[in-house]
Amino acid sequence: MNAIIEVENLNFGYTPQNTILKDISFEVIQGRFLAIAGPNGAGKTTLLNLLCGLLRPKAGSIRIDAAPVESYSVKKLAQKVAVVRQEFVPVFDFTVAQMVSMARTPYLGTFGFETKADKQMINEALEATDTAQFALRPLGSLSGGERQRVFIARALAANSPVLLLDEPTTFLDLKHQVGIYDLLKAAQFEKGKTIVAVTHDINLAAQYCDEILLLGADGNYHIGETKDVLSQEQIEKVFGVRTFVGSLGQEKFFIPLGKFAKDSGQITRKPHNIQQE
């Protein structure tokens, strides 16, 4: 299998003195779903911004589809990589359809009108994310979860092989969190997208992602199959928090335990189908 993202000895810091990311190397195989998790300030979003060419590495290299990121023009890179950041309301009242149409910008001609093929891709993306019903409504009139779906529709309409997401489910309720990840998983399976998502939610990562990159605040990192990397010890080491680890069939889940948690790590009342590991 081909690696579509290759990161080699990556170093980055915002000032010459400090280095956030030290000697990071990993690759993402085409069609895989990678989560990037870690405590605040570990450099997750920085890493994502490096992958999409918004920042330049201090040392080391990032290759997308076998070519260095810096060798792409802004337009060509956008054709390879679509980015979804946290949802926002734009200054001007663009409609959902207009917002999703913007994904086709790197393909438009001089005066910027969409072709039939462009329109088809936009409509498919709207249908796939169940946002076609809002197509003519201003983005500002939607709820946060609906808006995030629109941004994912935009990323899908770009028709790029790689999808990068920065905390796509922050501020969303449980139903919308799962809904967003369901959409991403569908894009992975049906369209063969390679997905890299920065997330704080290790449970969603455990459930949906093939691999996980755990970035520690100390600069250490672990990458591997999600089920291998995520363990009580590893999470305590990286996040500095004790967790209760349970399993539901094949799925592992992690409940963080604070100072006031009763019975430190022991669950007293067990629902019948949950076993402690």
Partner: peptide, 15 residues
């Protein structure tokens, strides 16, 4: 249109 969304967004959309 894309620029009105901000610099980061514009770059992500190939502008």
């Amino acid at each position: 249109n894309v620029l009105a969304l901000g610099q980061e967004e514009a770059k992500g959309l190939g502008v």
